[in-house]
Design a protein around this nucleic acid. Structure first.
Length: 905
RNA sequence: GGGCGCAUAGCUCAGGGGUAGAGCGCCGGUCUUACAAACCGGAGGUCGUUGGUUCGAAACCAACUGCGCCCA
């Protein structure tokens, strides 16, 4: 079942961290006998364990899924990374969240499937391969379409998908056997199938429109592939005729003007409407028309109309039957008018302005901020261009996508993102899906010699014979990505995988591609799977949105800014778990995540803390076994107050973590775990446990069970976010096979114990006060001094040994001389400081405490003296203030007495 | 220009009608037998500004200022 070489390899490595040189080739996770502290070195070394652990998980098939099991499904499809891409922090973040959800559900007994794969990234990939060819002086046109596409496939085999190996480093639990690619046969078939259906339903059409043209990539772009920025430009006012002055930021397009427009209600120009004016430089006569779209406040209130080079002008042109005059070619060069012909658009602009200036036609030039579109792939300024393209009529599809959220078949997390969703789907423009590329799914439409147009389905024979040609264009990459939640499961075939895992349970992605990708999946998913009925047509029932990863000052990461970070470097230095924990701990729903190296280091420290806590527990003989119940009263076997406290805290934390996970509150779940593990378990319980462990006998035995119980649950709970370190520790602790397939721990409400919790709070308060006193008195933390404890009664009764252990106070011998004392509640501690009492420090501390209490007293008295407060505030609140007042009074009395007792200066 | 969001400790962020929390950083002290990647103690905030609602506002409302994002 496994490759013996690899298996030996992984065991070898495991031995080096694990079984203390044992000859037993099975390793501790295969039942190599009782765990031993010799198993663990004194510090966690992620580099030594991560890779072999991951390989073992994959070999054992933990991440594979069964289409026919009876377990409830839990399926997430990976937001497909580009085949050209490599792992950046954004991926690492998203994958951490998905993996955490998947691992938890797997432990909870779901049939868990995380579908891996990549998209073919039409423009990006074609660019990469063209650049490679250019080094050899070859263009794609030299090769021809077929040979070029062949080259792209070769490139993909050779260099594509670097990210897949990097995902292993992160620990992504994906079902590798199911990996898909948008260009593979099955997914191509899905693309053709849905194209044909949409075409037949008249939801796909071909039309001449203004599109966003990238003059560098030589293709159309959809609206969402264009990024707008406010750039500084010049607003130039040009005199076309005596009374005709137009303002424009793009004077070079004037060669293609076919009208001048004014607002129909603009009093100033009524007499001009219907007349003509001569277009400068061309001598062409163009009409002056009235159109409500014109803003009378802008410039002179008259605008030039260039229907072939501006989307708004195109609409005006349509309304007025104006001719569309294209004056630029696909490279963005001017195609008409002698002196300007062949000039690039940015050269033509000053040339034309100069020519107009010579004629005295430039009335004004002024700085002007205006939005400029840039190609999201190459940042080139986009050129609006009139051309014949294929479109998806999104109206009914987008409405259905909106309805699915409106009637709560699909939930968006966090809910506040819904407004973004509706804002988009309720006002969506038709989607331009054709791209002038060779790498992609070719549009399955054939044109006949007599103008026939035939759309071909996957099982149809394309028309053949003289004069038939296939459309040259390919489809937008997002067209195939939109099918991802079901095409990857085998659609359009009726597969078991589809039946089991569609709809997917969750989609995890960034809010920035809610519209790019999610909206498209919703539209196509609902359309393609409508036959399932409304409840099962949706692509996923929950959309969990995360934010963007930013640097430690909240700045966007970018290569040009120089603040981009390679996640692999951090994984090398601190381990994958450290990176994952940092990212998960920063993941507040829909909110951006700043990350800095310091924080990754802190997470590494946390992993090391867990490591050492487990190491200590193992050294102390911790074991996982049956615990006494909380109610058990047998003095020897019953749990101590600290035991009951940590168990209460553990199970409370577990319940909180569950609730946070269900609400996609990764940050809070991680925080709760961090706080519990470090501040409660390590800092208090482990320290408290040392007393009974040293005592031995039943007390030690009980403590070993509690340590084992808590660590077992804690490690299982942490596994989804820190899979590697928990795997090592948990298998060593339990001797079981793997925490990946361990059950998710259940929160036991019976372990909740308010009495134990308040008892330990009191103990902590006492210990902290004594430590503070020691610190104020200049005692070294480890310095033991003799002290007498009085009044260790009530909930603290029987815990004097723990208190002494935590405060380094020895039992006094015969020669004991009390030279200082501190009182906390009912407890008085008398210490022998051998005369070296720092009275001033003590006075200072008492005075400070006194100030705090006096302030509290004053505040509560003020409130209680307010009749409105007494009359209107809830009784519980009034009670609280009364209690605070009483507490303050007694504290003040105590502190004043203590101050008085201090020797006078 | 339209819409949305955010302003809380030096930094990054939680919180949320009963006058503040975390991580990191900072200061002082410790190699105390799991851990110096650690331990112990400590200092730091009138919760952007101005009004309003309320017995009570950092929290709710309004305006303003600043910042960010999306869309034109």
């Amino acid at each position: 079942m496994t490759d013996p070489t690899r298996s030996a390899d992984s065991i070898h490595t495991h031995d080096s961290i694990g079984s203390g040189g044992s000859e037993d080739a099975t390793g501790p996770d295969n039942g190599a006998g009782p765990p031993s502290e010799a198993a663990l070195p004194t510090a966690y070394d992620p580099a030594a364990v991560e890779a072999p652990i991951y390989e073992r998980w994959v070999e054992r098939g933990y991440f594979e899924a069964d289409d026919t099991s009876d377990k409830p499904p839990f399926c997430i499809v990976i937001p497909p990374p580009n085949v050209t891409g490599s792992l950046h922090l954004g991926h690492a973040f998203e994958h951490t969240l998905i993996d955490a959800l998947m691992r938890r559900r797997r432990m909870q007994g779901y049939e868990a499937l995380w579908m891996p794969g990549m998209d073919h990234a039409g423009i990006a990939t074609q660019n990469v391969v063209e650049r490679e060819l250019a080094k050899e002086g070859i263009s794609r046109h030299d090769l021809g379409r077929e040979a070029f596409v062949e080259k792209v496939w070769e490139w993909k085999e050779r260099s594509g998908g670097m990210i897949l190996g990097q995902m292993r480093r992160l620990g992504d639990g994906v079902a590798w056997s199911r990996e898909r690619f948008t260009m593979d046969d099955g997914l191509s078939r899905a693309v053709q199938t849905i194209f044909k259906r949409l075409y037949d339903d008249e939801l796909i059409y071909r039309a001449e429109r203004i599109i966003n043209w990238c003059v560098r990539c030589h293709t159309a772009l959809s609206d969402i592939e264009v990024e707008h920025s406010d750039d500084e430009g010049t607003l130039t006012s040009i005199r076309y005729g005596d009374e005709v002055i137009v303002a424009t930021t793009r004077p070079e397009t004037m060669l293609g003007d076919t009208a001048v427009a004014v607002n129909p209600d603009d009093e100033r120009y009524q007499h001009l409407i219907g007349t003509e004016v001569e277009l400068p430089l061309t001598g062409r006569k163009i009409p002056i028309i009235a159109d409500a779209h014109v803003d009378p406040e802008f410039g002179s209130g008259m605008v030039k109309v260039t229907p072939a080079h501006d989307p708004n002008d195109f609409e005006i042109g349509r309304r007025h039957n104006l001719p569309n005059m294209t004056v630029m070619d696909e490279q963005g060069a001017i195609t008409t008018h002698g002196p300007f012909q062949g000039l690039d658009r940015f050269e033509a602009r000053p040339a034309i302005v100069d020519a107009l200036r010579e004629q005295g036609r430039i009335v004004e030039e002024r700085r002007h901020m205006r939005p400029v579109g840039h190609c999201s792939r190459c940042k080139t300024v986009v050129e609006p261009r009139l051309s014949l393209q294929w479109w998806v009529r999104v109206g009914p599809l987008a409405e259905a996508a909106g309805d699915a959220v409106r009637d709560e078949r699909v939930a968006i997390h966090p809910k506040s993102m819904e407004s973004r969703w509706f804002g988009w789907v309720d006002d969506m423009h038709d989607w331009c899906i054709s791209r002038q590329l060779w790498w992609g799914h070719r549009i399955p439409v054939w044109y006949g010699p007599d103008g026939e147009v035939v759309c071909v389905g996957p099982d149809d024979e394309p028309p053949s014979g003289e004069g038939w040609t296939q459309d040259e264009d390919v489809l937008d990459t997002w067209f195939s990505s939109a099918l991802w939640p079901f095409s990857t499961l085998g659609w359009p075939d009726d597969t078991d995988a589809l039946a089991k895992f569609y709809p997917n349970q969750v989609l995890v992605t960034g809010y920035d591609i809610l519209f790019f990708w999610v909206a498209r999946m919703m539209m196509f998913g609902l359309y393609a799977n409508a036959g399932n009925g409304p409840e099962r047509a949706i692509p996923f029932s929950t959309i969990a949105l995360h934010g963007m990863v930013r640097d430690q000052h909240g700045k966007k990461m970018s290569k040009s800014f120089g603040n981009a970070v390679d996640p692999l470097e951090w994984m090398d230095t601190y381990g994958s778990d450290a990176l994952r924990f940092t990212l998960a701990r920063g993941a507040n729903p829909g909110v951006d995540v700043p990350i800095g190296e310091d924080w990754v280091q802190a997470s590494r420290n946390f992993c090391n803390k867990l490591w050492n806590a487990t190491r200590f527990a193992l050294m102390s003989g911790a074991k996982v076994g049956e615990l006494p119940g909380n109610e058990q009263s047998d003095r020897l076997t019953s749990l101590s107050m600290p035991d009951r406290w940590i168990l209460s805290r553990l199970h409370t934390t577990l319940a909180e973590v569950d609730a946070y996970y269900e609400d996609y509150q990764f940050a809070k779940a991680c925080d709760a775990l961090y706080h519990f593990a470090w501040d409660e378990f390590c800092d208090w319980y482990v320290e408290l446990a040392k007393t009974p462990l040293n005592t031995g006998g039943d007390a030690a035995e009980r403590t070993r069970l509690v340590l084992g119980h808590v660590l077992d649950r804690l490690l299982r709970m942490l596994h989804p976010v820190t899979p590697f370190v928990t795997e090592v520790l948990w298998t060593t602790l339990t001797g079981a096979e793997s925490v990946v397939v361990a059950p998710w721990p259940a929160a036991e409400t019976a372990r909740t114990d308010a009495a134990a919790e308040s008892g330990v709070v009191e103990l902590q308060r006492l210990v902290t006060e004594i430590r503070r006193f020691r610190s104020d008195q200049g005692l070294k933390p480890g310095q033991r001094v003799a002290a007498r404890l009085d009044g260790v009664t009530g909930v603290l009764a029987g815990h004097e040994a723990e208190i002494r252990s935590l405060t380094k106070l020895n039992i006094p011998d015969d020669g004991f001389m009390s030279t200082a004392s501190v009182t906390v509640g009912d407890v008085t501690v008398e210490l022998d400081l051998s005369g070296a009492v720092d009275v001033e420090a003590e006075r200072k501390r008492l005075t400070k405490d006194l100030g705090v209490e006096r302030k509290a007293l004053e505040q509560s008295e003020r409130k209680l003296g307010n009749e409105q407060f007494l009359a209107k505030a809830p009784e519980t609140e009034v009670e609280k203030v009364r209690a605070r007042k009483i507490a303050a009074e007694s504290e003040i009395a105590r502190l004043e007495a203590q101050l008085e007792r201090l020797a006078p200066r």
